[in-house]
């Protein structure tokens, strides 16, 4: 069968599909491991939202920064963290990105400029502005992407950070991943408006708003904001409409939405959409081969996490202070 040669876009789509599929498979394995009691604490999955993080981070340079909330596995992987380091961290192992001290909600990777996931809703947004502040101070041309849910928009730290970022013209893109629910609370019961990007208006900040159904569109639209940050040192608030297919966390009874609603959303799955588009050009075989490769990588990462050693109590004091412990 004749196939048209791949365009640059298709090349990129294939690459981004691979990233999204890697995240999806790791998240599914996390859910399984959690059910088996191998992962403790809170676990917030990114399933359904992969196109946001993957598309947005594809618009970055490697030395740009990413900061997010506890829903951070996908962001960390898109920024370059290997699946082994993610899973080992979730299993609480010494080979995890944070030596097993951070867990699911706190994935940090200094090498890849992943500046962490944070557990206090909105609390990381001023910190992200500070990272952008440092980039401007140092003149290193780096851009910071700060991810958060629409639940962050109701807390003060969001507003202080946007206010200061606009005032001081910081090179940052604030990305609100609006997945319609803040835990069990739908948008309409947490905000007085439907268009979250309007919050930028009060700070005279540029804004954008779109659905995350096409990962390449996410890349292009966030790319505009990244350019604005890098070239004009101006912040942007971008509301990306998305949907999480799983519960808020693993303990979510999910009574606040109907199975029909979730099924309808799954039909719009950006990951499946990307795969379908690629199959149309490359054929099912090629995609199946890529999926199999990802399957093997994922299995390897799970095996690694299972077999990795536990961290020793010896690391507790040196990771609390630089130098001698202050007691």
């Amino acid at each position: 069968m004749f196939r048209a040669p791949m365009s640059e876009d298709q090349d990129e789509l294939l690459r981004l599909y691979g990233q999204m599929q890697r995240i999806r498979r790791v998240e599914e394995e996390c859910a399984r491991a959690y059910a088996q009691g191998k992962i403790g604490g809170f676990l917030h999955l990114y399933i359904g939202q992969e196109s946001v993080g993957v598309g947005a981070i594809a618009a970055l340079r490697p030395d740009d920064y990413v900061i997010g909330t506890y829903r951070d596995h996908g962001l960390a992987m898109a920024k370059g963290m290997p699946a082994r380091a993610v899973l080992a961290e979730l299993f609480g192992k010494a080979t995890g990105c944070s030596q097993g001290l951070g867990g699911s909600m706190h994935l940090f990777d200094a090498e890849h400029h992943m500046l962490g996931g944070y557990g206090i809703v909105g609390g990381h947004i001023p910190l992200a502005a500070g990272v952008a502040y440092a980039s401007k101070y140092q003149g290193n041309g780096r851009v910071t992407l700060c991810f958060f849910g629409e639940g962050s928009v109701t807390i003060g730290s969001f507003h202080e950070a946007l206010s200061l970022a606009a005032l001081w013209k910081l090179p940052i893109v604030f990305i609100c991943e609006n997945n319609e629910y803040s835990m069990g609370t739908p948008l309409a019961r947490s905000l007085s408006l439907e268009d979250v990007s309007q919050k930028a208006l009060g700070y005279a900040m540029a804004r954008d708003r779109f659905f995350a159904r096409d990962v390449l569109e996410v890349k292009a639209r966030i790319g505009e904001a990244v350019t604005r940050a890098r070239e004009e040192s101006e912040p942007t608030l971008v509301e990306v409409r998305t949907y999480r297919f799983r519960g808020h966390s693993m303990s979510d009874p999910g009574k606040y939405r109907t199975p029909e609603e979730i099924e309808a959303q799954k039909k719009l799955d950006p990951l499946q959409k990307a795969r379908d588009a690629l199959v149309a050009v490359l054929g099912e075989e090629k995609l199946a081969a890529l999926d199999a490769e990802i399957e093997a990588e994922t299995a390897d990462a799970v095996k690694h996490a299972e077999e990795a050693p536990e961290p020793s109590p010896d690391i507790l004091e040196p990771t609390t202070y630089v130098g001698e412990f202050a007691r």
Binding site: L115, H124, P126, L127, G130, V131
Partner: peptide
């Protein structure tokens, strides 16, 4: 918070 973020990346 701006201070904390700036401190993390070298200031």
């Amino acid at each position: 918070g701006i201070g904390v973020g700036a401190a993390m990346v070298g200031l």
